[in-house]
């Protein structure tokens, strides 16, 4: 769990292998979120993903982490969000976990319906689904697992 990672910095392992992994535990501080994105995106770029891919990864990370802090942790500043990532030359795995009770993704209304177009929230999950190869919200709903695969 989050509390078992006292060091919130990224942990690179297996430099001889092809997979770069990291675990980052964050508080709801913009600088920590930016640092996470920069860390992951450096790895993503270094293994050869293009600019459109890094745009997609940044967007998905932004939306997942924002949802985790705002909805999952209900903006409780004492709660953390844990991001695990694994980057290889052909695919990227991201898991974002919060300390909240979870939620039912089926209960989120479709923001692209005409009747919902003017509702100012509720677009994060659909954007992640649009940009990632796969998105799974793991019951009870406090962890989201995403994969981005090279075309």
């Amino acid at each position: 769990m989050a509390a078992s990672h006292p060091d919130s910095g990224p942990h690179h392992t297996g430099d001889a292998s092809e997979v770069r992994r990291g675990v980052v535990v964050m508080h709801d501080v913009r600088a920590e979120i930016d640092r996470l994105q920069d860390t992951v995106l450096v790895d993503v770029a270094e293994v050869g993903f293009d600019e459109a891919s890094t745009f997609a990864i940044r967007l998905a990370l932004e939306e997942a982490v924002a949802n985790a802090f705002r909805h999952g942790n209900a903006e409780d500043p004492s709660k953390t969000v844990t991001v695990r990532y694994a980057v290889s030359s052909h695919e990227i795995h991201l898991a974002v976990e919060d300390e909240g009770p979870g939620f039912d993704p089926g209960a989120v209304p479709d923001p692209t319906e005409d009747a919902n177009l003017e509702i100012p929230s509720g677009r994060g999950i659909m954007l992640m689904r649009a940009y990632m190869t796969s998105v799974e919200i793991v019951a009870p709903g406090n962890r989201i697992e995403m994969i981005f695969r090279r075309d």
Binding site: E62, A66, E118, I119, P120, R123, G124
Partner: peptide, 16 residues
């Protein structure tokens, strides 16, 4: 270069 769904939400509120 980058904007989030929260930014889209703010624009929708302005539009309204």
């Amino acid at each position: 270069e980058h904007l989030s769904s929260a930014a889209l939400g703010a624009l929708i509120t302005v539009n309204t």
